[in-house]
Design a protein around this nucleic acid. Structure first.
Lengths: 251, 251
DNA sequence: CTCCAATTTCAACATTTGTTAATTCAATAG
DNA sequence: CTATTGAATTAACAAATGTTGAAATTGGAG
């Protein structure tokens, strides 16, 4: 059953969780320590600081943040089940900060343990590698979104993405999801200003596509929102998607 | 000497080429086949098609392209020495097309060989993993650039990035570099239109910061251009940079 | 050389987004 | 309950970018 109650049970859930053997799932679970609760704004891994551990997000939201000349930019978002700074295992120093958005529960794995896995578990290594490339695929979709979409569509797109990612791990419902991000943060993630994101939120609400208020996102007609935002979930490599790497199953 | 004349000699040059032992450099070199010359617009790896090989770019330029609703968007650029679709080894199917910009020379490695490396060479595996995360770091910087910079600065930023990446592999000179991208392509990579990129090229030329014409990029005052574009090269993980992972040296 | 096609350049106008500043609303401490 | 603070909302105006259509330039093919 792939250790369904383990600390790492959400890792790659909805993607290719079944690519892990029972042994691998148990091993992964055993190297994650007990979760630690941290408050809003906690810096999980700071830019340019030598990393010795990597963090599995067990509960809550995390943003990848780059502060530059007084402006705070969000270059990525992570949801429960994401190995948020596995990148730091190979890079050792990150180019950005990893920061909690709202309180969160964090599991930690030492890089010594990860190095053992790379040495002894080639298949699990490929799965871990895969999970970091999933982040890269999401980065590319954000680039695409920023290059070709207007602010209204960008907002819709990011909300659709979050719904799907949360749905993989069982945290979305038919009408939306809960999310601690403020309008300022949405502006930072959409490459626009707080004033403009407010205009845009109002506009999509009036279109009947999306409602956002105090921690709750409501999607009255998600298919319509996805069409409006030109959102297609393939790049998330979910189970059964066009791109999913079923080949990783074979150890 | 890390096999200085080998096919893979440009791989990670300027970054942590010295992280590879002679054995690893020779091994990497041995798994790359003879280079194949391909023309402009050649699709190295198509979106959603099962990949069986990964490609090392030996000469020329390559773009990561996502076509969507008639528009062609460039979500990444690759230069000689880049393992352009190593991502496809772990993902198996890519979310984007990998396309040559101008004629190019391509080396190829089968995924069977890569799987052997992952099984038998944990340190080399980490270095290959690192190289894909370098792409992710560049993706994040593009997101940052698109979120916070105006078109003039975006253009300057992307040109500074290319200069540094080409400089790592010895293909930049003091005053600029050669590049086959047309104004249309620069527009596609900056998230703007061909008409506007033309305005912008004119503007930065008049500022005395950058000249672009028929395949040649000239930077009369690169430090000034970098300041104007808010470009800082750390995220490229070059030798001696803030973020470079010197720790990967230890096998 | 001449012609042709692709690329670059330009102008006029429309739309989107940024900026500044003020106002309203919501949550919480006391 | 009230005061206070942070967040959300709105308005008016400025700046950046998109759109359309045309003209100029360039590099090759013949």
């Amino acid at each position: 059953m792939n250790n369904p109650l383990g600390k790492a049970r959400l890792f790659l859930k909805g993607r290719l969780r079944h690519a892990l053997s029972d042994h691998e799932a148990a091993l992964l679970d055993s190297v994650v320590d007990e979760g630690v609760r941290v408050p809003d704004g906690h810096v999980v891994q700071a830019r340019s600081v030598r990393a010795t551990h990597s963090t599995l997000l067990l509960d809550g939201f995390i943003a990848r943040v780059i502060d530059d000349a007084g402006t705070r930019n969000i270059v990525g978002l992570q949801v429960p089940g994401d190995f948020v700074d596995l990148h730091a295992f190979a890079l050792k120093r990150l180019d950005h900060d990893v920061v909690t958005m709202g309180p969160a529960l964090l599991g930690s794995v030492s890089h010594e343990r990860l190095a053992q896995i790379v040495r002894d578990e080639p298949h699990l290594t490929r799965v871990l590698w895969f999970s970091t490339l999933l982040d890269a695929a999401i980065h590319r979709e954000w680039i695409l979104k920023l290059e070709q979409l207007k602010a209204e569509e960008r907002l819709g797109h990011i909300m659709c993405e979050l719904w799907h990612r949360l749905n993989f791990v069982g945290l979305a419902d038919a009408h939306g999801f809960n999310m601690p991000l403020l309008q300022t943060h949405l502006a930072n993630a959409c490459g626009t200003t707080a004033v403009h994101i407010n205009r845009v939120i109002k506009a999509v609400r009036q279109r009947g596509l999306l409602e956002i208020n105090r921690g709750r996102v409501t999607m009255p007609d998600r298919p319509a929102l996805e069409a409006f935002s030109r959102f297609k979930p393939d790049y998330l490599y979910g189970e059964g998607s066009l791109f999913m790497s079923e080949d990783l199953r074979e150890p």
